[in-house]
């Protein structure tokens, strides 16, 4: 259970972080529904991966450290891993989308990856 005797500043800070994380995750996933095409939709979940996840991790570090009465920062592992891997998935999806729909008219035309200016 949540420790009942956490200090007020930690309570406020963790609550703020949780609410920020929840709101950002909700907005990021809403972007999946509201944005018009695949290339724009890739931008939505980056909200979850960056600040949404980051604030929840910070809140988790804070609460776990208070509970254990020492600094617990194992969550840094998840941060490092997500920072290293989330861009890879996004880039692969972006290139897959470009590769699979070369013929797209107008401003949003996917450029050939091998053309240079």
């Amino acid at each position: 259970m949540i420790p009942v005797d956490i200090p007020l500043w930690a309570d406020l800070l963790a609550s703020l972080l949780m609410i920020t994380g929840g709101a950002l995750t909700l907005i990021g996933s809403l972007g999946l529904l509201r944005l018009p095409d695949l290339f724009a939709r890739i931008h939505g979940p980056t909200l979850n991966n960056s600040l949404g996840l980051g604030s929840v991790l910070l809140a988790s570090i804070l609460i776990a450290s208070i509970q254990a009465d020492r600094l617990v920062f194992q969550e840094v592992l998840i941060t490092l891993f997500v920072v290293a891997t989330a861009p890879v998935t996004a880039m692969l999806l972006m290139r897959a989308g470009m590769y699979r729909r070369r013929a797209d008219g107008g401003k949003k035309k996917a450029p050939q990856p091998d053309e240079s200016t």
């Binding site: 931008h43 980056t46 991966n49 960056s50 920072v83 972006m94 470009m98 450029p111």
Partner: peptide, 9 residues
């Protein structure tokens, strides 16, 4: 890519 709003292509 990690910065929302821009993705490397």
């Amino acid at each position: 890519t990690a910065t929302p709003g821009t993705v490397w292509a």
